[in-house]
């Protein structure tokens, strides 16, 4: 059944399967080996897949390589270094920044809403340890740090 599927796979289908596999392999390699090693491994695996897929079908070729994560780890076992995971640090920083923006947006929106509904001219509060001041005057409404 599998053979029938692969026999009818178009050149685009083969390319898509190969590049999808290499993309996932690249993602896993990214945090395990250096960029130079990563490029070298990807170049070699791409060549191997092309040669292998010319001898048999792309599905069997990729099945034989195993999951991208496992293959990346196999390569990393011998190339492992104690380099910092910069990408992971950037993802964490961006995530925390977005979280902070979201929380502060809802907090300030809540403060302004409370001011408007109560009719008070100003209010003072603390957000994550920072003193925050909100005002509702004839000139306008706003929020800022004291």
């Amino acid at each position: 059944m599998k053979t029938q599927t692969t026999q009818t796979r178009s050149a685009f289908g083969v390319w898509r399967r190969r590049e999808s596999y290499l993309f996932r392999l690249d993602l896993w390699l990214e945090e395990l080996v250096s960029m130079r090693e990563r490029r070298s491994i990807l170049r070699e695996i791409r060549g191997n897949i092309k040669v292998d897929a010319a001898a048999r079908d792309i599905d069997t070729t990729l099945d034989s390589l195993g999951p991208p994560r496992t293959l990346a780890r196999s390569f990393a076992e011998t190339n492992r270094s104690n380099r910092p995971f910069w990408n992971r640090a950037i993802y964490w920083f961006t995530g925390l920044l977005l979280l902070w923006f979201t929380l502060s947006f809802f907090y300030t929106a809540g403060m302004l809403s409370a001011l408007l509904s109560s009719g008070a001219h100003s209010a003072e509060s603390y957000f994550l340890g920072l003193p925050v001041s909100a005002f509702n005057r004839e000139s306008g409404i706003g929020i800022g740090r004291r």
């Binding site: 191997n48 040669v51 034989s64 195993g66 293959l71 196999s74």
Partner: peptide
């Protein structure tokens, strides 16, 4: 030998379950 040919050679000597993903690394 090149990668895939080597895998086939190893399979031919009896390692029939050998996968390319084991040999390339």
């Amino acid at each position: 030998s090149y990668g895939y040919e080597l895998v086939v050679r190893l399979q031919d000597i009896g390692l029939s379950d050998l996968a390319t993903g084991t040999v390339y690394p």
